[in-house]
Simulated scan of single mutants.
Amino acid sequence: MTTAPVRTLPKPLRRGLLTLHVITSVGWLGISLGNIALALTVYNTSDPALQHSIYRVLEIVGNIVILPISLTAFATGVVLSVGTHWGLLRHKWVLIKLVLTLGTVLMTYLSLVPGLRESAAIVDATAPDRLADIDGSGLLSAAFVSSSIYTFNVVLSTFKPWGRTRWGRRAAEQARTRVAARV
């Protein structure tokens, strides 16, 4: 079985997608780091007004910013990997980034955003002069885990460790065979 040669994106499109990917990925990391600061504050506050405000802000960010930015970072990463020589399944670091990013997108959609909505509903049902009965440890844990994953993904993108996957090795061998057959 032979595979087609890698078709790469035109340079202006690749650069534009790469720029959008970096912006959204860094934005996602920044949101996550901001969530750590907010979660630490809400976890340690004895000020009901501050607690209520933070949970409302977190809900707004969750509803308006997190999902679009996470989906854009994921989608641009997939398009870039498919449209460049790196390939989606050819290098271990790309495959690991794919799995980690897909996992965080799913957990954001299925757990984080609904949890933020639930916390905001609890805050809305609590008198403004009373602390809402919310365990902020889940929010804090989610922010630390996601920040760690995004930071690890940056390290993977920078160092590109571990070489090719078996599919990447097979594709490279087939490419060498095609070149040798032309000579």
Rank of each mutant, 00 (worst) to 15 (best):
W162T: 11
L89Y: 06
L140G: 10
T151K: 11
I149P: 00
R56K: 12
W86C: 03
V154G: 11
V65M: 11
S147C: 12
S141M: 13
A121H: 09
V82H: 04
V94D: 00
L139G: 08
G83Q: 04
H85W: 13
P114S: 09
T84C: 08
T84Y: 00
I122W: 08
D133R: 08
V61W: 07
A49R: 13
F152R: 07
D47E: 13
V99S: 08
M107V: 12
A75D: 07
N153Y: 06
I69G: 00
S148I: 04
L106R: 09
G77H: 02
K160Y: 06
A73W: 04
I69K: 02
T84S: 13
L110D: 10
F152V: 15
P48H: 06
F152D: 11
S146H: 07
V79W: 03
S70K: 01
A127H: 14
D133N: 10
W93P: 00
A120G: 09
H91Y: 12
K160C: 09
S141C: 08
T45L: 06
A120L: 07
G138T: 10
V78Q: 05
A127I: 07
P161A: 09
V155Y: 10
L98G: 02
P161I: 08
S137I: 14
A75F: 10
V105Y: 01
S147A: 15
L88V: 03
S157M: 14
A120N: 05
S46E: 11
V65T: 09
V154Q: 13
H52Y: 04
F144T: 03
L110F: 13
I60V: 12
L95Q: 08
L67P: 00
V94A: 07
E59F: 02
I60L: 15
A120V: 08
V61S: 09
K160W: 05
R117E: 04
F144Q: 04
I122H: 06
T108W: 02
L139S: 03
